[in-house]
């Protein structure tokens, strides 16, 4: 903010003065910005790195680095936390959620992208709500209902709960994608004698495939990382990796810190693999910007 007065002052001083002085002023700002970014990344590296180093450390207490290195914690974590079962559940839940949310979301996205009808804005808003609300707020009533119907505590409850933010997410990512496919291409297909089913099979499906792939991978990443909803609805044998990690952390002291770290590294590795796959299909911002700019009121 120091630059404020300097820059405006230079502007008032007269034309020949402006350029050199502005450059001098701009430089510290650039340094400041890059400094902040680098500081952030250093801390990020520290956060992830300390978990990684600790998971391979023999004994790490009050020193820069562990005394020695070992990979035994991974084996220990694998058996102790029954990670095979946990990873299996994680994959089952994620794939089910991806499949179901595409099945439910894509047709709705199609109608919302293509058609105008009374109440469309209301419906769109209702679809948006689950991702605008924090998961805990609707997760607690949702879990209560799921327990009431005996659905929570096992896989089906976890899948149903995770569908709640996933379906709107599919709708949100697919709607702009469908909008950019010219509706006249479908009209052309119909004029060529294709019925609704053929239009979908021969024209829409091939054109939508990249979009569906992108939104599938986004849902996958989000479901694997979703803590709150899974946490609220999972039973002992339907925990996903991130929930299992939470439980092992909150029970700290009982198990060796390093085996919890090893588990965290496995979770990280899984996410990074998914992320690498995801980034082949989508741009990084899409992973984050889940809310499309809403239609202006």
């Amino acid at each position: 903010m120091v630059t404020t007065t300097a820059a405006t002052g230079a502007g008032a001083a007269g034309a020949p003065d402006v350029r050199p002085r502005r450059r001098i002023v701009a430089r510290p700002a650039a340094w400041f910005v890059w400094g902040a970014v680098i500081f952030f990344f250093l801390n990020l590296l520290g956060v992830v790195g300390s978990v990684l180093v600790s998971s391979f450390g023999q004994r790490w207490f009050n020193s820069w680095l562990p005394d020695g290195y070992t990979s035994k914690w991974y084996g220990e974590a694998w058996t102790e936390f029954a990670l095979f079962q946990v990873i299996k559940v994680t994959l089952e839940v994620s794939l089910l959620v991806v499949g179901l949310s595409l099945l439910i979301g894509v047709p709705a996205a199609y109608v919302l992208a293509r058609r105008n009808f009374p109440g469309k804005r209301t419906i769109y808003l209702v679809f948006l709500l689950p991702i605008l609300m924090p998961p805990i707020t609707f997760g607690i009533p949702l879990a209560t209902v799921l327990y009431k119907f005996g659905l929570a505590g096992h896989l089906s409850g976890v899948v149903l709960a995770n569908l709640v933010p996933s379906v709107p997410f599919v709708i949100l990512t697919m709607t702009p994608f469908i909008e950019q496919i010219d509706a006249r291409i479908e009209s052309a297909a119909r004029m060529c004698g294709a019925g609704l089913r053929s239009v979908f099979l021969h024209v829409l499906a091939p054109l939508l495939l990249p979009g569906m792939l992108a939104s599938a991978i986004l849902v996958l990443v989000r479901t694997v990382g979703m803590f709150e909803l899974t946490f609220l609805t999972a039973g002992p044998d339907s925990q996903t990796l991130v929930v299992a990690l939470y439980y092992s952390m909150s029970a700290a002291g009982i198990r060796a810190q390093q085996s919890v770290d090893a588990m965290a590294v496995m979770y990280t590795a899984m996410m990074v693999v998914l992320l690498v796959i995801a980034l082949r299909y989508v741009n990084p911002t899409q992973l984050v910007a889940r809310v499309k700019e809403e239609p202006e009121p």
Binding site: I185, S187, C192
Partner: peptide, 13 residues
């Protein structure tokens, strides 16, 4: 009927 569109509306794939 057959139809020709303003922007051609060819199947891009």
């Amino acid at each position: 009927f057959g139809m020709v569109f303003q922007n051609y509306a060819l199947f891009p794939h």
